[in-house]
Amino acid sequence: MAEFLQYTTNGLIAGSSYGLLALAMTLIYGILSVPNFALGGIYALGAFVAFYVVQWMGPGYYLFSIVPAVLIGMIIAIVTERLVFRPLYDAPHAAGFIAALGLYSILEGSWAILFDPTWRKIASPYNDIVLQLGPICLTMQRLIILVFCLLFALATYYLVYRTLTGKKIRAASENKSVAQLMGISPFTTTTMTFIVGCVLVMIAGVLDAPAALVGASMGLTPITKAFIVVALGGLGSVPGAIMGGLILGLGENYGAAYISSMYKDLFSYGLFIVVLLILPNGLYRR
């Protein structure tokens, strides 16, 4: 039982991070119908921001790195949207998808050149604090990941469902031309969505950095899984992304614990393929 609770906690922590990434991806998918793989490169940038803040200012400033991460996320959102995705607004969706893959490749290549292609660890002060909550044992850092991811997910949920900006985003993702007729500019809505998405991914990068190795290609596996979560949760669905993230995190950890840890990654891809075959349109339908 204690073991089970431990796996559940681990699963929820991994799942909350998947959920945050998936949330970013699903918002952008809703508006562009493009699975934006480039978010994987932006996630790695978030981790690098945390790394350099800790290196230059000291471990105590680890959580402060969220601030520059958010600012950089906004800039990179506007730049990539203008330069890469806007010219492909009317092109077939496959073109946007392939361009996103290309952008990921550019980002990963740039980080490798700018920051050295080595893997490094972040000295977060919260890595060494071990909490014992009943039978469950976890580091402070992992608790921070869980709490902050859920917090930002809730904030996004509020933004999308309770504010005017969110209404515009949802209207544009529902039907672009009708939204345009209602006076909602598709360009500003897209830019807004990109900003929200990129900022979320940067934050996820900052949060996950101390619990993982920081490197140029660190975003590939998480973003691929976020991609799977989005597909499972229903492309474009916000609650689907959060729920799907948690389910994948839990499934992976139970699978690794009770089936085989060697095939932990295989488990999530296998799960995805099986679900896709049974429900070709994802778990949630909008």
Binding site: A95, G102, S105, I106, G109, A112
Partner: peptide, 20 residues
């Protein structure tokens, strides 16, 4: 080796935008 991903990505985006 190091510049390859950058080159691949850049040429891909340029081609897909300007030569569909």
């Amino acid at each position: 080796q190091m510049y390859r991903p950058l080159f691949f990505g850049a040429i891909l985006i340029i081609v897909i935008i300007f030569m569909p």
